[in-house]
């Protein structure tokens, strides 16, 4: 009896979220998938089965071998930017979280310092990106400074509208998404474990590798999921910081939408979703988040 009762309560508790999730996420996703297989013309979708959205997307992928076709090149670039952003935000985010969790003793200071990390979010995304131009541009502060110091003679062109600036903007934006979950995992680590390791003669590095990293893994994976899913689908930051010259999976979808080619856009969205799911499920293979929480 009690078991039945418990499971009923559990269903009731999960119910509202499940409804919202199905109505506003699963259902639209089903529609997108259906539409992705439709045909289209200049101004409307034609509800007839045609995999044109997909076949057009992979056009020339076999014929152009060994050169990569557009879609593969685009994904190679997107995955590369995503990997760089992930690696850098993880390193920086982990370090900040470690500092907050183990070096800052008072709870008040922990909260104050975490809030400081949100400062970049106090202005709009677009303004933040526009602000990079006077800093990194050809006549920007960084180039002027380096020239005045005599370190360079001609302005560095790669500072802006390059992969460098894209990754820089991503790191600036998303490190916070790494800090929070990792910090959250770290403060749950029992201090006695660290003391025990110290007593047993472990060096700081050994403690880090054998105690802290394994126990902070759920936070690392959650942070990684945030960063990877956002970067894989981004087209605004890549567009502005890359000077619209760097392709991304999100950008292709946007261009297709703007040309009113909804089925083609949907097909690209389904492909992007598939690839992102593969990456995320590979990550969750490493750590069973549900078990660790």
């Amino acid at each position: 009896m009690t078991k039945d009762r418990n499971s009923l309560i559990a269903w009731l508790q999960a119910g509202p979220m499940m409804l919202v999730f199905s109505a506003f996420f699963l259902l639209p996703l089903v529609f997108v998938t259906i539409v992705s297989a439709w045909d289209y013309n200049e101004y409307e979708m034609l509800p007839a089965l045609s995999f044109r959205g997909y076949t057009d997307t992979f056009e020339g992928c076999i014929a152009q071998l060994p050169d990569l076709c557009t879609i593969l090149k685009t994904y190679a670039k997107t995955v590369k930017l995503c990997f760089l952003t992930w690696a850098i935000t993880l390193t920086i985010g982990f370090t900040i979280a470690y500092f907050l969790a183990f070096h800052v003793r008072s709870k008040t200071w922990q909260i104050v310092l975490s809030l400081l990390c949100t400062i970049p979010f106090w202005t709009s995304n677009v303004i933040r990106m526009v602000a990079w131009v006077p800093l990194l541009g050809r006549n920007g502060l960084v180039n002027q400074g380096l020239i005045d110091l005599g370190l360079i003679k001609v302005p560095l062109e790669w500072l802006l509208f390059s992969e460098f600036s894209v990754v820089l903007a991503f790191v600036h934006l998303f490190t916070f998404f790494m800090v929070v979950p990792i910090f959250n995992s770290m403060i749950r680590i029992d201090p006695k474990l660290i003391e025990a390791a110290y007593d047993a003669g472990a060096t700081g590095f050994q403690t880090l590798v054998n105690i802290i990293i394994p126990l902070a893994k759920p936070g690392i994976v959650i942070g990684s999921i945030f960063v990877i899913t956002i970067v894989m689908g981004d087209f605004v930051t890549i567009g502005v910081m890359g000077g619209q010259q760097i392709a991304s999976a999100g950008k292709i979808i946007e261009t297709r939408l703007n040309a009113l080619q909804f089925p083609a856009a949907a097909a690209n969205a389904v492909i992007l979703l598939g690839i992102t799911i593969v990456i995320i499920s590979a990550l969750t293979r490493l750590v069973d988040i549900r078990k660790e929480l």
Binding site: V133, R138, G140, L160, F161, G243, Q244, Q245
Partner: peptide
């Protein structure tokens, strides 16, 4: 031309075009 580095950036929005030109990019 793009591969040879002819273009500094592409623009999409009115303000982007103003920024590119005004900053000398």
């Amino acid at each position: 031309a793009k591969k040879a580095g002819q273009f500094r950036a592409f623009w999409k929005d009115f303000n982007e075009s103003v920024n590119l030109m005004a900053s000398g990019e």
